[in-house]
């Protein structure tokens, strides 16, 4: 699956908010077609990491090299870079005054100067793939959370990005809508799109990831395959984190359940 060509290189990345260090010298390399899932406790810097990669947060130290270009250079033309780095947010962030279709067409037409026909053809292709072509004239407020998030994914994909950043895209969704969004992302992973995914959906992470990056306290604690990470994490911190998602069975074999039986 991996062609091995390096797309993104992060070296000793430092990011502070006021006096507090959020990323403390993070180093990471991402290859073409790789799906990285970044997990870790809240406040560990996952979202900040993604936001540094497309310049939504200025960095305080280290280097980010995307396709050979230093993004930490202050002269960086972010408008150009962001066309190649797609991002999807936790709260969709669709433009509420535009229809689903207009949300998707805005970037290709205004930023990439594509003709309306060309942009429309691409939008139609992607909207069909996420089953929303017949909802194209709906405004965001008329769509469910899952539908909004699928539109937001299409909006990012319509720019033909070389890499996609997903920032907790299912965290605001009702459980029954999580699936429809994750299916879309899984589908993209199978096609070989390079992706960085921040998520709390562990089953999804395990299924979709080529590599799991476990982040804690502003640094990478583990970088391994999903099987190794979930079955046999190398560090105590990762084990403690994974235990949060594990519940012991509290039903004792001869306990309160028998009471119910006696009442029958």
């Amino acid at each position: 699956m991996l062609s091995g060509q390096v797309v993104l290189k992060i070296k000793d990345l430092v990011k502070n908010y006021d006096q507090r260090a959020v990323l403390k010298g993070l180093t990471l390399t991402v290859s073409q077609g790789e799906v990285l899932v970044v997990i870790g406790p809240s406040g560990c810097g996952k979202s900040t990491l993604l936001r540094c990669l497309n310049g939504l947060e200025p960095v305080n130290g280290g280097q980010i090299i995307f396709e050979g270009q230093y993004l930490t250079d202050p002269q960086t033309n972010w408008s150009r870079i962001r066309q190649r780095v797609g991002m999807v947010f936790q709260n969709y962030e669709l433009f509420p005054h535009l229809t689903a279709l207009e949300n998707i067409l805005l970037g290709p037409i205004k930023v990439q100067n594509k003709s309306r026909e060309e942009a429309l053809a691409k939008a139609e292709y992607w909207l069909n793939r996420v089953d929303l072509w017949d909802r194209r004239h709906s405004f965001p407020r008329q769509l469910s959370g899952g539908q909004k998030q699928r539109v937001a994914i299409v909006r990012a994909l319509a720019m033909d990005p070389e890499i996609m950043l997903f920032d907790e895209v299912t965290a605001s969704l009702d459980p029954e809508m999580v699936r429809e969004v994750l299916d879309v992302i899984t589908n993209l992973a199978q096609e070989g799109l390079t992706m960085l995914i921040v998520t709390h959906e562990m089953a999804f992470a395990r299924a979709v990831a080529d590599r799991i990056i476990f982040l804690d306290d502003g640094g990478i604690v583990e970088d391994s395959t999903p099987d190794v990470f979930f079955q046999n994490p190398a560090t105590e911190r990762a084990r403690r984190f994974l235990n949060i998602f594990h519940y012991d069975d509290i039903h004792k074999p001869n306990g309160s359940l028998n009471l119910a039986k006696n009442n029958l």
């Binding site: 972010w78 408008s79 870079i81 962001r82 947010f89 962030e93 970037g107 205004k110 930023v111």
Partner: peptide, 12 residues
């Protein structure tokens, strides 16, 4: 976030 969302698309 509306600013972020627009910027992330490459809008100036």
């Amino acid at each position: 976030h509306q600013w972020d969302s627009g910027r992330a698309l490459g809008l100036t």
